[in-house]
């Protein structure tokens, strides 16, 4: 969506004055709504709506053999699908680049053991492990996809129930796994340290979070920071801009701060969601 020079100047001055187009300041997020447990067939799911951005995440579990190099770790895979519902640009293979970038960033964010412990996904060392497929469906694109996706994933993982394994019978090469019969006898995944992605955009001399579509057009350079509890698990520069080293450091600090705030708000909301899965709204 192209913008005229005058509109870009207006947005630029607005960011300088800490008063953006819709009245937010540089650190404010638009109102978000989160719903968990929406998809019946998935083990865990979440639906997040951030103003015009709509993301649906579902988690499915399968039993698989672990990689030979990491016999006591499970597997985690991200698939991103930008459906043509979101923008006509995504029709056919248009959304593939964005999907690949998003999936890659998420994969590298969750790669470290501190962020997400894959060892807990192991059932039998070297033979059987849980494989988590995290499927992300982008229903509507209104800017700021990375943040919305990461929050939705965290909520979906929180909502995921892994069936408890009662017994494992090894008979030569045959391995039989017995899963507990009752549906509610499950384990939950510990997602306290799961990272939250924050997109920071540099407009003029300052940086903002949660850009809208028109603000994204005016950025000089933008960065994605995946952070949790003051530790960074992934950073990558988006787009084709370059930053000075000091700006980079500024962004890092800013990003960590915002990520902590987002994390707190999300954990609070998740704690409030009751078993009946009502619709909860929260503001950042």
């Amino acid at each position: 969506m192209p913008l005229s020079e005058a509109e870009k100047t207006f947005i630029l001055h607005g960011v300088d004055e800490n008063f953006r187009q819709d009245g937010r300041d540089r650190e404010a997020y638009r109102p978000m709504e989160l719903e968990t447990g929406t998809v019946q067939h998935a083990f865990g799911s979440a639906h997040l709506r951030l103003a015009n951005t709509d993301v649906l995440v579902a988690v499915k579990l399968e039993i698989d053999a672990p990689f030979p190099e990491t016999p006591h770790e499970g597997k985690l895979e991200f698939f991103v699908d930008c459906s043509a519902n979101a923008t006509p640009d995504f029709e056919g293979r248009g959304g593939e680049d964005l999907a690949v970038e998003l999936a890659n960033t998420l994969a590298s964010a969750y790669q470290s053991r501190q962020a997400f412990d894959l060892r807990k996904m192991c059932i039998l060392k070297g033979k059987k492990c849980w494989k988590l497929y995290v499927d992300i469906l982008i229903l509507e694109c209104g800017g700021n996809l990375f943040d919305a996706t990461s929050l939705a994933i965290k909520a979906a993982l929180h909502n995921t129930q892994i069936p408890k394994i009662k017994a494992v019978n090894i008979d030569g090469d045959n391995i039989e796994i017995e899963v507990s019969d009752s549906v509610s006898d499950c384990e939950k995944i510990n997602i306290e340290n799961a990272p939250v992605l924050v997109t920071l955009c540099k407009i003029g001399q300052h940086c903002i979070v949660d850009p809208s579509l028109s603000e994204e057009q005016c950025t000089v350079g933008s960065m994605v920071v995946a952070a949790t509890k003051n530790c960074v698990s992934t950073i990558s520069l988006l787009g084709s801009g370059s930053l000075h080293q000091d700006t980079l450091f500024q962004f890092l600090d800013f990003g960590c701060k915002i990520a902590n705030r987002l994390n707190e708000a999300l954990m609070e909301t998740l704690a409030n969601i009751s078993v009946t899965n009502e619709n909860v709204g929260f503001l950042k």
Binding site: Q111, A115, I235, L237
Partner: peptide
């Protein structure tokens, strides 16, 4: 700095 990529913790 035109590109930064970091993995790990």
């Amino acid at each position: 700095i035109c590109q930064v990529h970091q993995t790990g913790f």
